[in-house]
């Protein structure tokens, strides 16, 4: 049987989609109007790193000391090997072991 989408679902998800897409495209289109030099440019250049760092730091800290150790190991492995997958697995292994042992 082919399910039907209820009108209210159509609207609710549709609005969520419009909001999300507008933010994605809006950010890009707004940024192209920003000045491309000086202080503003420096801020925009720092943005990706600052965003990514802000994304991870609270989840690292939430894991406590072992979270910091796992993140440090991940950083070392990626710096040494340039292999993101290996680095990710090393970090996960620390957390996996810690949780298994109930530390």
């Amino acid at each position: 049987m082919f399910p039907a989408i209820k009108p209210q679902v159509l609207v609710a998800v549709g609005l969520a989609a419009c909001v999300t897409y507008s933010l994605r495209l809006g950010g890009l289109l707004l940024a192209s109007r920003f000045p491309r030099s000086g202080r503003f440019r420096r801020g925009m250049d720092a943005l990706p790193g600052a965003l990514l760092f802000s994304l991870v730091l609270p989840s690292i800290v939430a894991e406590g000391v072992w979270g910091l150790m796992a993140a440090a190991l991940t950083a070392i492995v990626v710096l040494r090997t340039r292999n993101t997958l290996a680095a990710m697995l090393c970090g996960m292994l620390v957390i996996f072991a810690v949780r298994k042992m109930g530390l």
């Binding site: 993140a71 991940t74 950083a75 492995v77 993101t84 680095a87 990710m88 996960m92 949780r99």
Partner: peptide, 15 residues
């Protein structure tokens, strides 16, 4: 530790 997979991979990318 799959919840930490995102944290770990984003950490590696941030580096």
């Amino acid at each position: 530790a799959l919840d930490f997979a995102f944290t770990a991979v984003f950490t590696a990318l941030a580096v």
